[in-house]
Design a binder for these strands. Sequence first.
DNA 1: CGGGGCTAGTTAAGACGCTGTACTAACAAA
DNA 2: TTTGTTAGTACAGCGTCTTAACTAGCCCCG
Lengths: 361, 361
Amino acid sequence: MLPEHARAHNRSLVLQHLFHEGPTSRADLARATSLTRVTISDLVNVLLSEGLVEELGVQPGRRVGKPAILVGMRTDAYQIVAVDLSDDAVMRGAVMTLTGEAVVRRSLPVAGQVGDALVDLLTRFARTLISAATRPVIGVGVGSPGVVDDSGRIVEAPNRQWSDLPLAAILTDRLALPVHVANDANSAALGEYTYGGAADSMLVLTVGQGVGAGVMVDGSRVRGAADAAGELGHVTVVDDGELCACGRRGCLETVLAAPALRRAVAGLDPAAADEALAGVGRTLGTALAPVVGALNLGEVLLSGPADLLDGALRAAALQALTDRTMPATAAGLRLRMATLDEDVVLAGAAVLVLAAQLGVS
Amino acid sequence: MLPEHARAHNRSLVLQHLFHEGPTSRADLARATSLTRVTISDLVNVLLSEGLVEELGVQPGRRVGKPAILVGMRTDAYQIVAVDLSDDAVMRGAVMTLTGEAVVRRSLPVAGQVGDALVDLLTRFARTLISAATRPVIGVGVGSPGVVDDSGRIVEAPNRQWSDLPLAAILTDRLALPVHVANDANSAALGEYTYGGAADSMLVLTVGQGVGAGVMVDGSRVRGAADAAGELGHVTVVDDGELCACGRRGCLETVLAAPALRRAVAGLDPAAADEALAGVGRTLGTALAPVVGALNLGEVLLSGPADLLDGALRAAALQALTDRTMPATAAGLRLRMATLDEDVVLAGAAVLVLAAQLGVS
DNA sequence: CGGGGCTAGTTAAGACGCTGTACTAACAAA
DNA sequence: TTTGTTAGTACAGCGTCTTAACTAGCCCCG
């Protein structure tokens, strides 16, 4: 560790504070970071010259002494390009502000492309998005299915016919911008953590064609021994259950994926449908109980079709979690819907860039 | 972050390397830490003057150039006092080297003491250990049951009648030494991680009077939203199971705690006993599968009576884990016995001190 | 209404930590 | 013996933080 790393760390502290707490005076930044006013002034001057922050006039608070000048982060000064590859059929992308709002949205049918052709298609798609940006782009974030290591290498993504592919490195080279790649469900967790106000210790369950999960523990993303953390979709939850796409039986995905849920409630009257969904909820709660107990999670978030998830299913899952973990663990636990809906993965991809380039998350 | 923090970090890098890799030349330390030889020389000189490292003569390797002088950590130069409070009836303690070997062992019957009286007893016990040390003591580590926050405050330890008790602060004050306190099962995980060579992502299950767990994720200990991570013992694993001490039914503890296991095999012939243990193993595997899947754990360690755990139970649990998680997750998973036996908690308590005082873990 | 008290922010000097460069020390190979 | 290589050290310089001392701007009070 060198002095310049300490400098970068302090710079991130300032940005992190401005990002989450809003405009702040230099003096308050000094108190919050426990650095001196001198150091903060210096850092702020650098950030001002980069256009990352701006002065916003004096603080409205009326106290004795010289009035403080508020410094705020210019969340519209730079933009981030985010791509969501979780859908087999269509690439979704956006140009986003630093606060995770999509300024421009694009999507592109994948048309069955896989392997290197898909990388080329993704490159072109990213270029389109970059040129659609209205401000300088600080980086590109990609949420992809499959196992992705911390260097942005796709270890394995069977449906894309990607294996041991250094996607981040390839795109960084081709786009001449910093590119960061992570698993889509892990991205979702990052998105909910940073933009959705989720707890420090939480799990996001993404329910769509399949079931994925991303876990945050004590404020950082869980990677796992083989970068495969979050593979809850293929944990067995029903003995001798339905055949799963993975070849095994009774995976969580066979009861919780959106198509499975639709099938389960098809043609049923509302009460019976609720009972069916509650059954899935109990199964989910039973599977999650050991995870919640072992990690003492503060929140579990469900991301996916609200009409299926946010009702009897969620209530039954919470009940099962409460019944099956000790009161001290269950008392602090919330089970709620994710707040970012369809943009979760895009938002998370943006957070990848935000965290890596500015140290904000 | 200040420059001196960077210095402390670099110092820890050196110690960490020497601790885990053994004696190393300054030049090799420079390469390993990517600092310059100049900086390393300076750091090593400071460490030499503190007696933490020593020169060990020239490196046996025969290459061109000036032969390198090996520098090694003096793991016997300082000692750590560790206390294990996990047993209701007896306090166990030890004076340990920096490598986690017990030099002196002591134990003290608790004689039903609780609350403040127990704190006083613990203080006296620690003083005894400190005076039994043959080298300067760098700190005291305590592994305690109950919920312990990161400042060493006992949030709740019902059996000790401790609640919201700043144990680490009290002992630091009374003993005039740095004192660090953590949950006993979490300590066990730390001990196995640092001294037992456990994987970066792993879970240690401690089986004794009760069942506890400690989780390491990507090399750091999981604390949880309310500092209660590792409470796996009271996750429901058997529907309508036996009544648990916690008042609920079918907790993992009701089948996996040592007394429960002994009852389950009492009077059975070996084959029947193995079948009973295998049943518990399957239950355990089923409960652990979601945890292993969500975190992509590399290892699960069992700590407790080997005659009960290390046989049919372990085999069945591994089989269940393999059956119930996806192959990619299960392939890299090991389920083995902990290596440190009865000293796990003591070793972990030592690691608390080692990590906090020297930055080594 | 003018000075004392307080807070915000800047300037200047100094301490600390790392680097690059240049040096000496100690060996192997030619 | 000379040359080349590697280990370790001395010294100047740069970056980064701190403390101390300053200016700026406001409230309060006599």
